[in-house]
Design a protein around this nucleic acid. Structure first.
Lengths: 344, 344
DNA sequence: ATAGATTACGCAACCGTTTGCGCAATCGCA
DNA sequence: TGCGATTGCGCAAACGGTTGCGTAATCTAT
């Protein structure tokens, strides 16, 4: 039963006493095959329910029509949206997507890259681990002519293909809004030092304060490793200051969730005693009672689908008859402030 | 540059003036190859940075070491958790995972199945579309000896492999709790008729009422197609009844989010004027102000990873030397009530 | 010294499909 | 009638690796 071999071209050839090449050509409507032969071949193919073994073709083409996506954690809506972006782009190009979750673990990331190389994916999309600071493991892909495009969490190197999000625009809008509301003491809860986004947020923070002629105070700048305990420690440090900030810019929405809980636990009221602005734009805010004033949308779907586009361009060039020396593909999307102002 | 061919066994063979078979055997420490030859081969392989082309091996083995997962929507934490379960199981068995989101669209589901068949995955895991009521598209996989295991959203047929969740246990706990709190009028907001889960929930609802000697009232049983508008319509119908239910069992957490919003908009207080029990156990409840009394945990990760286990068993049997007639692999996990009682 | 065992390796087929080239048979045309 | 063009198809190699079988060369034992 399980030995029922699938119909192959050879099988068809045998039944018709023709050669495999004739069958192949007939099925492709090759002009050098006579009409009658073509018809007979098609008929038998139909009867047998023949379907070409794509794996054999792909193997011959030295392609897999599969790309790999490496992301930290699917449980985060940001990344599941990103994956959907990749999948949609891949579907449009008739590619498949294999996934690997690094779980923000550098060693896992290396393993996943290795595995994807073994499976000879045609290209790789990566959003880095928060601990990734070396990139040799990606170099091994170059050897196999497997192009790589980074998105969102990108390396701090310039010789790469990437799509990232520039948070300046959105954050400037947000701080301007805060200042307009009378806030002059605006704190910052930043993320892990290794993440490029952390430095970026800090720079923009300074820049925004400067553009609004606000003083800088190191006391109201704290950071977190993104664990719940650390998040709580960070926000509690701020609200227990002699002069706490009246508004805080928070690394991302997950950190903010903990912050809001801590603020409430301290008997303070969100958006009255203290206001927040965060990054990521969780879909869930719509249903929450306590929300940030605004969130900086980072366009997960847009970033990842554009990164996928880049990747396909690189793949198509690499496998084209005369591949050219591709320029680096780099794009930066402007973030956008999304307001959550509600009258409750 | 892009023409730099990867080192192959033949390349090594040529350099050493031996045959490809010798190289292959040497690299596998085959006893019939002399020590010196083995060493020389290994040395050259090392120098060239040779790595076997797994695709060639897989092709010969007629395997891909890839399984497909078809789920409705990654944006739902339930399914992203499920995907993680699959990925973990796959990693342990050295398999890759390709994904397909049906987006609850039957036609897409068919396409995805087709695509996975084309890519000759070794097996498929499926959680059905809410509109899937015919299963012929999966039969085509049987022809290719590609085993299928369903999970969570499973067909209403008995001749399949599946892992599902029995909601009786959890729901009985929950209703018992409600009754214990004095509720006698317990409503139901059910889901789309085509979904097996809908009928199941209805049956359990009846059963639980019966076991607690509660009367049944068709007026407090409504349903939704899971769109936001429909969700609101459903809950509004219930709370505008002359005698509204004091507790409602809701199809899932997403529907419940809309219900809570509607209840608040109507000036009612959750867990006071009306209480809820829902299914799925969203991770976000921890941070919400208004929560259900309890949620019925359906163990996405557990379901999917067990389904993956089943799949690997089927795959291993199918590709073993003497495959046996496998019995159907079926398992039902008991749900569990998770309480969200909070003192606020 | 010679049969038999052992060692160390090569040949060729195979997985399924594609494709350049060659060749026989028919056709067209002068 | 004879020659070049066309039609229609097969051969064999190729993708990269694995493996059953054959065999020459050396070794062992009698």
């Amino acid at each position: 039963m399980s030995k029922n071999k699938l119909p192959t071209i050879k099988e068809i050839a045998k039944r018709l006493n023709v050669s495999a090449s004739t069958v192949s050509r007939a099925l492709h409507d090759h002009p050098s095959i006579g009409l009658v032969t073509t018809m007979r071949v098609r008929k038998v193919a139909e009867e047998l329910g023949y379907e070409a073994n794509k794996m054999a073709i792909y193997f011959k083409e030295r392609k897999t029509y599969t790309i790999g996506v490496i992301i930290p954690d699917l449980a985060e809506p940001f990344f599941s949206a990103a994956l959907t972006g990749v999948e949609d782009a891949a579907e449009a190009s008739n590619y498949n997507v294999i996934i690997g979750q690094s779980l923000d673990n550098f060693e896992r990331e290396k393993k996943i890259v290795e595995n994807m190389k073994d499976h000879r994916v045609d290209g790789v999309l990566v959003s880095l681990t928060k601990d990734t600071s070396t990139y040799e493991h990606f170099d091994s892909l170059k050897k196999y002519n497997i192009p790589v495009v980074f998105f969102d969490r990108v390396p701090s190197r310039k010789d790469i293909n990437y799509v990232a999000c520039n948070l300046v625009a959105g954050m400037l809008q947000a701080v301007t809004k805060l200042v307009g509301m009378g806030h002059t003491r605006i704190g910052l809860i930043n993320g892990p030092a290794k993440l490029a986004a952390t430095l970026q947020r800090l720079e923009i923070y300074f820049r925004c304060l400067k553009e609004n002629n606000l003083p800088m105070d190191q006391d109201i700048i704290v950071s977190t490793t993104l664990t719940k305990a650390d998040n709580l420690k960070a926000i509690n440090k701020l609200i227990s200051l002699p002069e706490p900030p009246t508004a805080v810019i928070v690394f991302n929405d997950y950190v903010l969730l903990d912050c809001i809980a801590a603020v409430k636990a301290a008997g303070l009221e969100v958006n009255k005693d203290i206001s927040f602005i965060s990054f990521a734009n969780l879909p869930i805010w719509e249903y929450m009672d306590s929300v940030p004033l605004a969130s900086i949308e980072q366009f997960a779907y847009k970033q990842s689908s554009m990164a996928a586009e880049f990747l396909f361009r690189l793949i198509n060039n690499a496998t084209s008859a005369n591949p050219i020396e591709m320029p680096l593909l780099q794009h930066i999307i402007d973030s956008e402030m999304v307001e959550y102002s509600r009258s409750k």
